[in-house]
Each structure stands twice: as structure tokens, then as C-alpha cells.
Simulated scan of single mutants.
Amino acid sequence: MTQFFKYLTIAGASTLLLLFSSCSKKQERHEAIETSLSVQNHAGSRHNISADEQSFFLRLSAPKAWTLSLKGDASSWLSLDVKQGEASPSYSVIVKVKQNTSKSERVALITLHSGAEDKTITLVQSAEGVSISPNSGLTSSQAADAQRIEIPALRNTKQDLFIVHRTQDGTVNYSLEYSLERYHPRWVAFVFDNTTAAERWKTRTNAWRWDPQVPSQYSTIDFFRNSGYSRGHMVASSDRYYSKDANEQTFYYTNMSPQRQEHNGGVWARLEDMVQKWGRRASFRETLYVVKGGTIDDAQIEPRRLGGKMVIPKYYYMALVVKKPNGEYHGLAFWTEHRNYAQTFPLRSLTISIDELERRTGIDFFPNLADDIETQVEAEQPENNWSGI
């Protein structure tokens, strides 16, 4: 998705992800879904957007067949790619907004109708020349870091921390957005380039500790013991061998996800190994941009919370963009269920486009790429651009 990206979620309890077609019959049965509308990155029902032309997601869930309607003349400048659907705990709708060239703000009311309930969200687009910073609330250093190519669009709520870890020489090691409400990273992001792809320190440090950038009251250190889940690195220890402190930082608990070991040490490890081979092959990349995560929204987590607080994802994903030595860009994404896969399971079967991954997660990946490049790489299928799959 290009330019400014925001999304909405209607919270609900379910075990079905509508856009993932291989769910079992058992998975297709879900509990009653409450119809409630909230803006994930702003409290309340009013949402401000800039005057720019832009696209973003609405994410909704509904207990019965649903429709979306626009009030007033909003249809002249705002469009929805889907306006109706069947009952679902999680569905993404693309909203496209034209540039506002007038000197007045304009307002759109989008109403969800499902059964006897209606829920309305208000979008207010600024007048021309009135700027809205998508990174308000960040320090100047954080705002600059948020413009790095690998960084997804930030949510910017009080419950979401944007964290950048640097090594002693100032190199950005990796970044993440951490949910204080869900005790889990929403995503982690890093790059392989000629500096970070080096293997000067190939010893696993096991430097387990709480993240010094997050208050200790949110510590998850004691959640994993005897839980039946492993401490699954999002940035793998083996992703970061270029220095000792780079490897040590991968052992922060904010970088951990509760994974079943058969997934963590199985298909996930196979994917990580493939990405590392791409990242460390200078003939393959000038820079490889990597985003990883586990799903943490209500419809995409397991019923149990580790320690009563830390969510357990139902799905894990990776989003990759490579800048080739010849200047070309290519994109690829992976999507896995949180389960055991046969060792011979073809990894190519887990590939999807980044556009599809955005629709499933509600996250805008690589918004800092030039719009034409972003559009191209996010629509791509793997084809012949990624060796080994």
C-alpha cells in the first residue's frame, strides 16, 4: 500500500482467518462474534488522515452478513474495494482516498451494518496545506529511524513502542514495534548488507535478558518455563553474527514469541536458513530488507495467553524486499500456520505476495519505498527472482 496507511479492527473472538483458505472444518466453526468498532492506532471513532492521495485498510469482523455504506458525498472522493460479505471475524477492505485540493477538510462516515447492529467510524481528511505527521509522538531520532526502508507503517499508540537497537559502533541492528497490551512484538525488521551480513562472531551468546528500552513491569522472562512453548526468536540469533553485541541483543525477551518447538525448529528454521543464505550472498543482494512477526490481533491468536498476558500467534510471516546489485527490486512473503510441517514440505507452498500479506495482517510493509517500486514488489509472485524455492 502506498503513502499513509492506517487500519481499523472490529474486535471479535474466532478461530477462522477468512483469507487463509486451508483451514479445517473444525477451524471454520467459531464462537459468537461481538460487533464492536475501534481504530487500532487511535482511541475513539474519529480518525484523521492527511490531504494526500492514499490507500489504507479497514479491518472488520461481523457476526452475520455485513455491508459497508458511505454517508453524504464521500463517495466522490473515497472508495471501498468491497462493500459486503459473509460473517467473518477478520476481513480487510481497501480504502482509496483522492487528494484533497480544497481549503476545507472533508468528512466521511463509514458504517458497518451486521444483523441488528450498526457501527460507524468517522474519517476526517485535512485541507490542502494542513499537514498531519504520521509519526507524531516520536522523538526526532525515532522519526528519522521510522523512515528506514525496512520499517513498516507505525501504529503510534501509547500501547505500542517503536524500538531501535544499535550496536556499540552505532549500526542499526534491528527494530521492532512492541505491544505493551499483548506482551509481544507486532513485527521485527532488519537488513542484510555488507556490514550486517558478516560472520565475525558465530557463537550463540545466550545473553537472555529483558529489553532495557521497555519498563520491567512488562517483563515476560518468567512466562516460558514449563509452558510447553519455546522462546522463539523473531530476529534469529543466526541472523546476527556480525558482532558479539549484535548477537546478544537478539536474546532480549521483546524479541521472543511463544512458539511450538516443532514449528520453531522446523519450518520456521528452514525459512530462516533460506533468508540467511540470500542475505549473506553478496552476488544476490546489495541489501535484503526483512520483516518478521507473529499475528497478534484478536482473530489471529490462540485462546490462551502465556502468563495470562502474552498472546500466542496462530500464524507467522516474513516479508522480504531485495535490492539487487544491478539496482532492481523484488519482493516476496511467507505465511505459515503455527503447527508442525513435514520436513519435506515445499517452502514454495508458503509463499504469497506482500500485497496479500498486508491484507491478512493489516500491516503496511515497506511504505518508505518509492511508490512505483513499492507497487511493483508488493504485487510480485516469487517466479524466478528468489533462488532455492
Rank of each mutant, 00 (worst) to 15 (best):
G294L: 12
V124E: 06
D273S: 07
H233F: 04
N340W: 07
A13L: 02
P303W: 14
Q259T: 00
L17R: 08
Y183A: 07
I363C: 02
K6D: 07
L306R: 06
G170E: 08
T167G: 09
T167I: 12
A108V: 03
Y241K: 06
Y7F: 04
R209W: 13
M256Y: 10
V191W: 13
D193C: 11
H42V: 06
A269I: 00
I110Q: 03
Q213P: 00
K202I: 02
W208P: 15
F224Y: 15
A108M: 03
A108S: 10
F192Y: 15
T287Q: 11
S61V: 06
W278Y: 04
C23M: 15
S104Q: 14
A143Q: 13
P313A: 04
T195V: 15
S114F: 01
I389H: 05
I312P: 00
S50W: 05
V275S: 02
H47Q: 07
S140I: 12
V188C: 13
K277P: 02
T295M: 12
G129Y: 04
N48P: 05
I296Q: 13
I296W: 07
A370K: 05
I373C: 00
G294R: 11
H263V: 02
E356D: 03
Q249W: 01
R280W: 04
R46Y: 05
P325Q: 09
G228Q: 11
D160N: 10
S69V: 08
L161E: 11
G294H: 08
S179A: 12
L350H: 06
K158A: 14
F284Y: 10
S45H: 10
D355I: 02
M256K: 10
G307N: 08
V322Q: 05
D355Y: 01
S243C: 07
Y341M: 01
L271Y: 02
R348F: 03
K324R: 15
D73W: 12
G279V: 08
S24F: 14
S133F: 09
S22N: 15
K98G: 04
D81N: 08
E380A: 03
S238R: 06
S237V: 08
F366K: 07
Q40P: 02
Q213D: 11
W66I: 01
I149L: 15
F162M: 13
T205H: 03
T250K: 06
E150F: 13
V39H: 14
F251C: 14
F4E: 14
F162T: 13
I33P: 03
A379N: 02
S14L: 00
L332F: 05
A32E: 15
L58I: 10
T351E: 04
N247C: 01
T9K: 14
K71H: 10
E378Q: 01
K6S: 11
G294N: 09
K103Q: 12
D371E: 05
R260F: 12
Y289R: 05
F284S: 11
E328C: 08
F162G: 14
Y229D: 04
Y174D: 05
I296D: 11
S227Q: 10
D73F: 11
S283H: 08
D364V: 09
G129D: 10
